[in-house]
């Protein structure tokens, strides 16, 4: 009962825009804002939450910097993920 309720209220916001804005041409300004949303979302999802993944704040800092470095070199996303996991495994071995 509770689980179904949780499912319904989670599904509604996910599904509604696809029905509300179906085949509609939104005003250019709004289209521009919606195009910006992914990058703004990524910024907000990463920071500050990444600092709190472990009690040791350096954990998140080092992991994020490693990911940034690997990504900046042009690596594929999976390589970025594996790379930062590897760096943090090494870090937790030594500290």
């Amino acid at each position: 009962m509770m689980i179904i309720g949780m499912g319904v209220v989670t599904f509604i916001p996910r599904m509604l825009p696809f029905i509300m804005f179906r085949g509609k041409e939104l005003p250019p300004f709004l289209q521009g804002v919606l195009k910006n949303v992914p990058y703004a979302t990524l910024g907000a999802l990463i920071f500050p939450a990444v600092l709190y993944i472990q009690e040791d704040i350096w954990y998140g800092v080092i992991g994020a910097l490693a990911a940034f470095a690997v990504a900046f070199l042009g690596a594929n996303v999976i390589v970025v993920v594996m790379g930062s996991i590897a760096v943090l495994s090494a870090y937790s071995l030594f500290f």
């Binding site: 990058y39 990911a67 990504a71 996303v77 993920v81 790379g83 996991i85 937790s92």
Partner: peptide
Amino acid sequence: TLQQSMSIALYAMFIGLLVPS
């Protein structure tokens, strides 16, 4: 230890998606 290091995974993915853009 693996659990700890893997807690970075989704954030690393977000960063990996953001940096090329």
